[in-house]
Design a protein around this nucleic acid. Sequence first.
DNA 1: TCAATAGTGTCTGTCAGACAGTATGTG
DNA 2: CACATACTGTCTGACAGACACTATTGA
Lengths: 243, 243
Amino acid sequence: MAGRGEQSDERAYDPAAFPPFAVTADLAVFTLRDGSLCLLLVRRGVEPFAGCWALPGGFVQPHESADEAARRELAEETGVEFAGHLEQLATYSDPDRDPRMRVVSVAYVALAPSLPDVAGGSDAAEARWWPVTSMRPAELAFDHAHIVGDALERVRAKLEYTTLATQFVDEPFTVRDLQEVYEAVWGVTWDRANFRRKVLSTPGFVVSVEHGVRPGSATGGRSAQLYRRGDALALYPPILRPK
Amino acid sequence: MAGRGEQSDERAYDPAAFPPFAVTADLAVFTLRDGSLCLLLVRRGVEPFAGCWALPGGFVQPHESADEAARRELAEETGVEFAGHLEQLATYSDPDRDPRMRVVSVAYVALAPSLPDVAGGSDAAEARWWPVTSMRPAELAFDHAHIVGDALERVRAKLEYTTLATQFVDEPFTVRDLQEVYEAVWGVTWDRANFRRKVLSTPGFVVSVEHGVRPGSATGGRSAQLYRRGDALALYPPILRPK
DNA sequence: TCAATAGTGTCTGTCAGACAGTATGTG
DNA sequence: CACATACTGTCTGACAGACACTATTGA
C-alpha cells in the first residue's frame, strides 16, 4: 500500500539496506545474411558458462542509462557508431539468473542491414553470426535462450505494424529486397505482385529514387526501381503474418 | 566487443567496483470506472516530490524478481491477491531520474475490472483513481509522466491484437460491456452491430453463458446474453483503432 | 531470340462501415 | 401500448490472395 511505498522511500537514504544489484545491458543484434535472419553471439571465456555462447553485453556504468550502455556496447561490438535501429526489449531479474551475484539485465533488440563478418575488433574472443534456424537456444548461457525467444517474437511482430523491415536493408533497395526481409524473418513466401502493391500503397513506407535502377542479375532480367526509407514509422493498415 | 564484455564479467566478482544500484518496481494500474479509463496514483509524503502524485511501487527485495515485487506491491495496494492482468512495460534508468541515488525502475502495467474506491488499507497515505483525461501527467513525481504515457500507449495498442479488453470487465459480461471498454480506452464510438459481429466472429474471444441473461435497464429494454472470457489470447485478425 | 526478372491488370472472396429492420424486455 | 435496448440482415467499398499478362534487360 502507499504507506509501505513511502517507508521504502525512507530506506532509500541508507544504501547499506539494499542488496548489491548489478545492472547489465544485453543485446540481441539481428541482421540478414544470405537471405537468413542471423543473431550475433559471443563465446564466453570465463565461468560461469565458460565456452557457452551468449548475447553480447556489459555492465551499466554509473554515469549512463541502460539505453546509453546498450548503444555503447553496440559500438564496441561493431567498431563503429551504430546507425541502425535499437530498442529496449524487456528486463530479466530472476534472483538466480546469474550464480555469482544479483544481476538485473535490461535486454535490447538491434537491427542492422549488414555488418562485418567477424563482429568486434582485433580481440581474440570469438564472436559470430548464427542463423536463427541453426542456433541451439537451449545451450546459451544464463537465461539468454529466454531473451532470444522474446527478441525473435518482438522482431517478427514489429514487421507487422512498423516500417522496421527497412532497417534490414542497405539503401538504396528494391521492393524485392524488402520482400526478402519479410520472407526471411517470418519464414513465409509472398506473391510478388501482392507484396509490391501493399508496400507502394502505404504512404511513407518507401520513397523511390529518381532515375535510380539496379541492373538485372548476371543471367539477365529487367532492371529494378530503387527506393529509400520513407519517413513513416507505423504501417496502417499493418502487414499481418499469415494465420 | 566480446573481450570487454568478459572483462566486465570478471569485475562482477568485486561488488565494490559497482555503483549502488537500487531497483524498484513501479505500477501503472488501470481500471474502468463510470465508463472512464482510470489510473491509480498515490500522493507522496516525503521528499523528493513530497505532495506530488506518483505511481505506486517499491523496492525489489533480495530474494525476489522484479515481476514478483510488482505482484507483491499490487497485492499490498489492493489488499487482496491480484487476479487481473499484469505485464512488464519497460525499464527506466536515467542516471538523474531520482535525485537521491541511482534507482532503476522496472515499470509494469496492470489491468483490473473494478477495485475498491480507495485503494490501500487503513493507511493514512492518500491514494485515488484518476481518470486519464483529467490527470495532469506533467505534475507527477520523477519521470512518471513518461512512464504513464508509455503505459497508456501499451494498453491502447494491446486492445488491438489481444483479448486484453476482457480484463477490464467483471464476469459475466455483455457484448455491450466489452464495447464500452474499447470506447473508453480509445475514446471512440463503435457501431453496435459491427462491434458485435467482430467480437463473436473471433473464436475464443468470449464464450456465451448458457441461459445467462442480464435484465434490461430500469427504463426497459431487452435482456442481454451474458459471456465469459474465452481462452484465446490473441485476436486474429486484430481490431484496429480507426485511423 | 531466349531466359530471367520487373512490373501491371483483373477476378474473387472476405471483411469492415453504414444503416435499416426485427425481437424482446420494462413500464 | 410506448419505448428502450438487444440482435439480425444487407448493401457497399476496400483490400488481400491468386494468377495471368506485359515490359525490359543481359546473354
